[in-house]
Amino acid sequence: MSEINLLHIENLSVSYRIYRGLLKVLDGVSLEVRPGEKVALVGETGCGKTTTVKSILNILPRQAIIHRGKVFFKGKDVLRASDSDLNYLRRRGVSMIFQDPTASLFPIFTVGDQISTVIRAALSEDANNTQLKESSLFETALKALRAASLPDPERILRSYPFQLSGGMRQRVCIAMALATPRELLIADEPTTNLDVTIQDQVLRLISNMVAEKNISLILITHSLGVAREIADRIYIMYAGSIIEMSQTDDLFENPLHPYSRALLNCVPKLTGEGIGQGVPGHLPDYLNPPLGCRFEPRCPKSMPICKKIKPSLKEVAKGHFVSCFLYDSLGG
């Protein structure tokens, strides 16, 4: 809410058009990131985390409809940005690591080809670099791969994605994202599709590189354990809304929302497989979501008002926000 925010998403609502109707996936999401801050966005699969971050880069799939809301990056509205502002955002401002490293790279083009296309695009915004030399592109790419602790980077540049392991592919994606200077990195479940043994290495790599370059991070994860290790601040998302936000320590000491509590209860059981079994019930049907609180059908502390009105996010302690009528003096 302050002017020093790097990124500020305000009350964003997004739906997807499918043949049976509209999937109302995001319902008024607000989120902010300050310079140099590491933020985690936690929630179960399908709760709208990826949709939220894709809107930051304005790369939502074509079925998406943005009903309401704004996304500000350094004070400029991304969703209504001019081409040149959008290019600045994508080439210099924000970069993103996708969930599935196998699907993130064109299978029939070499790693070097794709990484240099990305670097070329990033540097083309730079007035001093109007004349890009292939050799300098090559150098930048090598440096980036080395920084992502990939062995034998020359060979990797010549390789095709299918010749690399999943972990190496994700490192390539990290290298791509951080080859040129950025202000914010978005990592969308960067380890979900990797072997358990290398998940930790990749997370540590991201965290170290972000710290080294002093850039902001949004880490998407469904694991509170991972979020606790890395993030300064945690957003908990459920069915398209932020239901709780606070400093990491605060949240673990004093979780407020019934959903957050349930999530924390299953932390010891976390296997990286998901948390569904810890919270009875399913995500609501996005075609016809509940009128009131979207967690109400699964909530152990449901009250009559929860069925009718959607609670808004309110500060109940310093820096600790929750959207639940249990903490609302007005609520019944």
């Binding site: 880069l57 790369i59 799939p61 290019n87 994508r90 996708f98 699907a103 296309t117 994606c173």
Partner: peptide, 9 residues
Amino acid sequence: YVTLLSAFG
């Protein structure tokens, strides 16, 4: 892979 390239501008 297409979304990724356009995300990088």
